[in-house]
Design a binder for these strands. Structure first.
Lengths: 125, 125
DNA sequence: CAGAATCCTCCCGGATACTG
DNA sequence: CAGTATCCGGGAGGATTCTG
């Protein structure tokens, strides 16, 4: 039994516009990370992604499925249960994402500082 | 004297929608790579970026400057000369970009294959 | 629970033309 | 050469509502 996803999973990086890189579109990278520990259900994914709408989550998952990053398994139960799981290809992105996270942890403060500094230049003038 | 930029620098990755990750916005990653070997001029950057318009190139460079990724040096000459150069912070992104390129070289074929495969499913039905 | 359907908005990025 | 100044369209993504 894997642990439930932390609702605040993406809070630390939440000034997301401050981060100079993304994996794929807006959500793909975060979804890959959510699936790192094992398969997850649709609603389960919505928790840490917080502001994502079902429409966009569906669309993103479909695209990832199309590209061979995740598999979709629907169990014939009631209420319905659907699980998404990383493929090998999807798992291979994890190292990339980790590299990005490490970089971000290291350098994000510098970026924010540079941004604040250039902001002050335009403010006092 | 550093070598001129190859106009076809980004041709191999040109089905860009097929690539599941980006660095920052559409152009930032490519610009960082263009500056890897040393400072470049505005017009010089336009060569490998090909379809970028001056407005967008300016906007992207300004944003990168604001975030401390590049420096802008204007020489008081006629005709004017301006050079863009990576900061240390900007250079630190190179390893990340290289990791992304390596990943892409390795797995892009698999993604395209998966995409083609799922396309055939919807076509013949 | 896991979506589908519909409508809508914002804004990124392009096209074009002009200039110190 | 290195940009500005306008204008503009498309498409990603959000809000809302409904359903097997």
């Amino acid at each position: 039994m894997i642990e439930p996803l932390d609702p605040d999973m993406f809070d630390p990086m939440c000034p997301s516009s401050a981060i100079p890189f993304q994996i794929g579109d807006k959500w793909t990278g975060m979804i890959v990370r959510c699936l790192a520990d094992g398969p997850r259900r649709f609603t389960e994914l919505r928790v840490p992604l917080r502001t994502i709408t079902p429409k966009v989550l569906t669309a993103t998952l479909r695209a990832m499925q199309r590209d061979g990053l995740v598999t979709r398994t629907a169990y014939d139960e009631n209420p319905p249960r659907v699980e998404y799981e990383l493929t090998e290809l999807g798992r291979s992105m994890l190292i990339l994402i980790d590299a990005a996270r490490t970089w971000s942890e290291q350098y994000l403060p510098a970026i924010l500082a540079a941004r604040r500094a250039s902001e002050e230049l335009t403010t006092f003038r």
